[in-house]
Nucleic acid binder design. Structure first.
Lengths: 247, 247
DNA sequence: CGTGTAGTTGAGTATGTTCAAAGTCTGTGG
DNA sequence: CCACAGACTTTGAACATACTCAACTACACG
């Protein structure tokens, strides 16, 4: 199986939690099943009862919910290093579908394996728990984003977040990064229509803040973007000082 | 200390997870510090690093975030039996303020105590983890609610949720329940203005679905409310069949 | 009886939606 | 290599939903 550097979720875990060498080794030793998916494929569908979780080794994913009147909401994006359905570990019935946005490589782990590791090491359990809690923190921030910011600020906010999360796994080049998503998907994430996404992007472009073209985002002015998007990265809990030593 | 029936979080835990008598006894034996709060008091403020968690024994609470332009978002309400800041167990810096809406009685537990219990019993860890995951599931649903439903549907949805959550801890009378909240707070939860809350409530009243008066909600037509709010309770994970046996 | 908070109403305005059509890009097959 | 199909983006115009502002009402509390 791949070395540590090839498993971005180990990189992410080591940044998010303080794990002993033994724990890292245990995580490294987990039996994984790798699978590749084309873009726009459901990996898990609302209502299923999965017996495993998966980490993203490569690619962009999202979760989504469909509403009764044909709408769709994307409550979160997931990038390399994330474990989008880690909550299925303790929530048998999945309440959200998970789907690839770009082509993806995923590493599947049995629930059983994870439960065994968590039971043996409270530090591992804490680290994984923490991962799900950071997801929760991001959901809260997105609620605020969708509920209380106008379209351009929402857009700027999500782009700032995407930048920092991709930076954390080494997937940015300067202030530019791959974000291979359609304007429709962006609208479903921000709670606005596709047409309005288009106009919002144009306006941010005109303001000299952001360029989004053929799946690549370029942030033209980071400080101004943070202001425009009312962005404070605390909720991402990327800082290790923000860590509870769990003996 | 109070008996099991007087601790709604034990009732909730026993409904949400399958715990052995020994585990229940351990949870029952936790040293608690009870404190009462008036309405509209901050209990935890964004940026703090609490060394304990609290469960709501009585009253209504919310978490909230302030935006740069003076807006406020309430990402969630919490009722008796909930543990609003359980995530602080593994997320040292709190990213959301927690505030009483009505007068509250809270039971504080030291992080240390909870860590010790979780370390000793993976079933307890799983149950508490599950609590935080259900919170996360509710956040996702609220994102969908705010992002993709119009005002009246949002309102109906939140009221349906409040009804079921209060029912689960025995705090409803028929189709009526106490929900002592102002229209402004409701607006901050739904992402709409206070004025629009008022008009939305009037319209639901006219439709014969809901009455909201002086802190009491009366659902006039439950099936119609579910339709109006596009409400499917699966995301609340109240059903114990939705439970992962964690050995 | 006055004060403050919450709720209510109306009018004008802003933000974002819908619908329809045209333009662009990319991959595929002939 | 070109033509074509399909998905994505862009534009305009009419419309809907929700916001802001300001005034007024109802009610609880001291």
């Amino acid at each position: 199986m791949a070395a540590r550097e090839e498993k971005p979720f180990l990189k992410r875990l080591s940044k998010i939690a303080r794990l002993s060498e033994a724990d890292m080794a245990a995580l490294e030793g987990m039996p994984l099943v790798l699978r590749t998916f084309a873009a726009d494929q459901d990996v898990v569908v609302e209502g299923e009862r999965p017996h495993n979780c998966f980490a993203i080794l490569e690619g962009l994913m999202c979760c989504y919910k469909l509403t009764g009147n044909g709408g769709r909401q994307i409550p979160a994006f997931y990038v390399a290093g994330d474990i989008p359905d880690l909550h299925s570990l303790h929530l048998k019935v999945i309440d959200t579908s998970l789907r690839t946005v770009s082509p993806c490589t995923l590493a599947f782990v049995e629930h059983e394996t994870l439960h065994a590791l968590c039971q043996k090491s409270y530090a591992i359990a804490s680290a994984l728990w923490r991962v799900t809690l950071i997801d929760g923190s991001i959901f809260r921030e997105w609620e605020t984003n969708i509920g209380r910011r106008e379209a351009a600020a929402r857009m700027a906010h999500v782009m700032c977040e995407a930048y920092l999360r991709l930076q954390a796994v080494g997937l940015v080049e300067g202030l530019s990064f791959l974000f291979p998503i359609t304007q429709q998907q962006l609208g479903d994430a921000l709670g606005i229509s596709t047409v309005h996404v288009n106009r919002t992007l144009q306006s941010l472009r005109r303001e000299g803040l952001l360029r989004f073209e053929s799946g690549r985002v370029e942030i033209l002015d980071w400080p101004a973007m943070k202001v425009r998007g009312d962005f404070d990265p605390g909720y991402l809990h990327q800082d290790l000082s923000d860590w509870v030593p769990s003996r």
